[in-house]
Simulated assay, not measured.
Amino acid sequence: MAVVRWLGLSGMLLLVGCASTTTTVPPVEDARTDTAPGYEPQLPADVGTAEPGTVQGAGTSEARPNPSAEVPREQHEAIARLERRARQQLAEGQYGAAIDTAERGLRLNRYSANLYYLIAQAYAQQGVSAQARNFARLGLRYVGDNPLLRAELEQLARE
């Protein structure tokens, strides 16, 4: 009987000891849902064009510096690789893969008009014109002084 009691007490002490141990859980860095199926980006009412190197502030016509100008060189190279891969996937008819790849690039630099164009193009090829228009409009916000890209984005935004 003493052995059973001793095992019971030692088991309880073990459980209490485990329960009192503190552990630190790191915070979640990015729990966004903007890549969930059916996600549609919301455009602010004041969508317009800003000067190259600037981003138009939400709810105001005042332009502020573009944070993408401060992206490290390694990140620029990664974005360029993702853009090339997305273009290749788009050319091969892998529209879903092109969208996924370009969205990965946007997570690194959300101000890339080229990536918005690739996503809009892929959605247009899939026949999802509402999504194509939304991404084209987002790309127009950051297109800068590239008249060819601006014309392509404007055409996609009208379709």
Rank of each mutant, 00 (worst) to 15 (best):
M1N: 12
V3D: 14
V3A: 13
V3S: 14
V4A: 08
V4H: 04
V4E: 08
V4T: 10
R5Y: 09
W6I: 15
W6C: 12
L7G: 02
L9G: 02
L9P: 00
M12W: 11
L14C: 13
L14F: 12
G17A: 08
C18W: 02
A19M: 04
T21V: 13
T23G: 05
T24P: 00
P26F: 02
P26W: 01
P27D: 11
V28W: 06
E29W: 00
A31W: 03
A31G: 12
R32T: 15
T33F: 00
D34N: 06
G38N: 12
Y39E: 08
P41T: 06
L43W: 03
L43T: 05
L43H: 04
P44N: 10
P44R: 08
G48R: 08
A50H: 03
A50D: 04
A50P: 07
E51H: 03
Q56I: 05
Q56N: 01
G57W: 00
A58V: 14
T60K: 10
T60W: 10
T60L: 11
S61C: 04
E62F: 12
A63E: 14
A63D: 14
P65M: 06
N66F: 08
P67E: 12
A69D: 15
A69T: 15
E70G: 03
E70C: 03
V71T: 15
E74W: 02
E74N: 05
Q75A: 13
Q75R: 12
H76Q: 13
H76Y: 03
A78R: 11
A80Q: 13
R81D: 15
L82Y: 01
E83T: 13
E83P: 01
R85I: 10
A86R: 07
Q88M: 07
Q88D: 11
Q89D: 09
Q89I: 02
G93D: 02
G93P: 05
Q94P: 02
Q94F: 01
Y95G: 09
Y95W: 07
Y95L: 09
A98H: 01
I99P: 01
D100E: 14
T101I: 06
A102I: 07
A102E: 04
E103H: 02
R104G: 00
R104W: 01
L106F: 04
R107H: 08
R107I: 03
R110F: 08
S112T: 14
S112L: 05
N114K: 14
N114R: 15
L115D: 04
L118V: 14
L118T: 11
I119Q: 01
A120C: 06
A120V: 07
V128A: 03
S129I: 09
S129Y: 02
A130I: 09
Q131W: 05
Q131E: 09
A132Y: 07
N134D: 05
N134S: 11
N134Q: 12
N134G: 00
F135K: 08
F135S: 00
F135H: 13
A136V: 12
R137V: 06
R137L: 13
G139R: 05
L140H: 07
V143I: 04
G144A: 14
G144Y: 06
D145Q: 13
D145M: 04
L148Y: 01
R150D: 09
A151N: 10
E152P: 01
E152D: 13
E152S: 12
L153F: 13
E154Q: 15
Q155R: 15
L156Q: 09
L156M: 08
A157D: 10
A157T: 10
A157M: 10
A157C: 11
A157S: 14
E159A: 08
E159Q: 15
